[in-house]
Nucleic acid binder design. Structure first.
Lengths: 120, 120
DNA sequence: GCTCTATATTGACAGCTGTCAATTCAGGGC
DNA sequence: GCCCTGAATTGACAGCTGTCAATATAGAGC
């Protein structure tokens, strides 16, 4: 109960050990979990996050998969709409960046600091 | 790069800011994210976690939803098979408990300690 | 064994989703 | 304007998934 509740647009990031999620909270958060629930998208996200300067252009990402351009674009769109990444066009190229706030919100729901949950 | 890598059955919990996830890691982790990617399942998980004694019987959970018994059972099965919860039968009743290790693994992938990521 | 309650499984079905071919859009060079 | 590259969108399609009715399984009391 000593968890710090942070209210972002009505979304309280209460850890699993706190209050149960409301239907609205669950709907919002589950949509982000769902976006990460595809191996390609999860890998895309991790590739973007691991990239130099914290951003990667689509051209950097596509090569890591044996998938077509439309498929990569579609996955990036899903991540974008889930609020996990944001894109910026620079001429012909489009660079994507992870939005850490969204990931942090998910992590906060999964539980408090690791050392605290292992002792519970 | 100073993140502590924990190897559980070949599953390295490298944060998003570290090495990109391998295809195998992404497949394993995305399946858990996928399990949480349904609002009903996410609410079930949070209800179980928030319950007294850290466990709840199906009878406690069903009332929170206007869904049929088979649907609740199905969702619980998905969570179970994703490794997010474990069940224990006591006579007629079945009690479910959250497996924090799984949630912790997900949280670890999403990023390091919150204070570290907000400064990045 | 019969009856009951609690829970899980099975099968059908409508809606959802990953994938790619075709196409469109965005930007740049000439 | 034409041509090019990079990226996104559209439409079709096969496979996946949430839901419930029907059924099966598990456990307890008599």
């Amino acid at each position: 109960m000593s968890n710090q509740v942070r209210d972002d647009e009505g979304l309280c990031c209460s850890p699993m050990t706190g209050e149960p999620l409301s239907a609205e909270q669950a709907a919002e958060l589950s949509s982000v979990f769902k976006a990460l629930g595809d191996p390609v998208r999860l890998r895309l996200l991790s590739l973007i996050a691991a990239h130099a300067d914290g951003e990667a252009c689509v051209c950097d990402l596509s090569g890591a998969f044996e998938l077509s351009g439309p498929t990569i674009s579609h996955h990036l769109k899903v991540l974008r709409e889930a609020g996990a990444i944001t894109g910026e066009r620079r001429g012909t190229w489009v660079y994507y960046r992870v939005l850490p706030e969204t990931l942090r919100r998910l992590a906060a729901v999964l539980g408090p600091a690791p050392s605290a949950s292992t002792s519970a």
